[in-house]
């Protein structure tokens, strides 16, 4: 089987997920199969040397691909795939991949599968497992036809399997229609330094929707203070402006690996899990015993956090 991997990069660095996808692609391609990495950029050809797990790299260079301009990248990846399918195309379900997977899939009229945690290709028949409804339900889908674009969640395949020595052959392709675009990339803005760096904390007390109000965050602060830790949050809390962006854990926030991560009122949506699953010890307190967070936590309490947290702070 022919398996394509869209290589994602930013600021000259390939994404960790690119290696996860390459490892997965290697396994799917099997003996006699081919793994082809699709690399775009402007002066980024050198990155191909890190894509040793692929048999071949298709590289396209264009000024519009220097940064991630969704319109330019969709056109580029579409053109790189044109005439090379059938095959399976793996994309990360990241901010870049969200524009690419559905965009390229629709442009090429190839089935798109999102939220994927696994892909199987038995005898050319493609089956994809997706994590839906915030991680509460899994769906197994059979793809119609012999091609698909699969947007895979981060962390569902080991990255080590996709790291290999040796420079694969690079085939450079030229692109059309990227000179007059409606989208222009202006600038990349680094996050403002917050008051604390949560990625450096040994203890994180993280709050989610279950904390219910801005005032209640004080309760988490009290617990964090007892433990010499810091307060972080899941996305809804930051969207509500109850805590600054610098405190957000998850896919669009920061990845943390503290010694202790205490999740208060966090259900455990895949986007949040991505940011904290490698913590050494995870304790989750959530009144919903079916909350996905309990799958990832080492210790769980399915009780009202407003009863347990003050009592815990008292005991420490």
């Amino acid at each position: 089987m022919k398996v394509f991997v869209v290589a994602e990069h930013m600021k000259g660095q390939l994404a960790e997920t690119t290696f996860e996808l390459l490892g997965k692609a290697r396994a799917l391609a099997g003996d006699g199969g081919e793994v082809i990495a699709l690399l775009g950029g402007h002066g980024h050809k050198d990155l191909a040397a890190q894509l040793g797990a692929a048999d071949k790299v298709i590289y396209a260079d264009h000024p519009a691909l220097e940064q991630f301009n969704p319109q330019a990248w969709c056109k580029a990846v579409t053109q790189m795939l044109q005439g090379r399918l059938p095959g399976l195309v793996l994309v990360s379900y990241s901010s870049q991949g969200m524009d690419l997977a559905s965009g390229v899939g629709t442009a090429l009229d190839v089935p798109v599968l999102a939220y994927a945690t696994d892909v199987q290709a038995d005898g050319g028949r493609i089956t994809v497992t997706s994590q839906l409804y915030g991680g509460k339900i899994m769906a197994e889908s059979a793809v119609n036809g012999d091609s698909a674009i699969v947007a895979m969640l981060a962390g569902v395949a080991p990255a080590d399997a996709g790291r290999a020595e040796g420079s694969p052959a690079v085939e450079e392709v030229s692109l059309e229609g990227l000179d007059a675009l409606q989208v222009t990339f202006k600038e990349l803005v680094e996050p403002e330094g917050g008051d604390v760096d949560i990625t450096k904390a040994d203890v994180i007390v993280s709050v989610g929707r279950g904390i219910q109000s801005e005032e209640n965050i004080e309760m988490a602060e009290a617990l964090a203070q007892k433990l010499g830790g810091v307060v972080a949050a899941s996305r809804p809390i930051v969207d509500a402006k109850w805590l600054p962006k610098s405190r957000q854990v998850g896919k669009s926030g920061l990845k943390v690996k503290p010694k202790l991560y205490i999740a208060l009122g966090i259900s455990g949506a895949p986007e949040h899990i991505e940011g904290m699953k490698d913590s050494e010890t995870i304790i989750a307190i959530n009144s919903d015993p079916k909350a996905p967070i309990f799958e990832y936590a080492h210790y769980g309490v399915a009780e009202d956090l407003f009863d347990v947290v003050p009592a815990l702070t008292e005991k420490l």
Binding site: G105, I137, A148, P289, E295, G300
Partner: peptide, 19 residues
Amino acid sequence: GSEVVRLFKPESKGGAEMI
């Protein structure tokens, strides 16, 4: 472009020790 073959609840990987 694809059909759902089946839905299932995520298999528990053991998960948390509940207190």
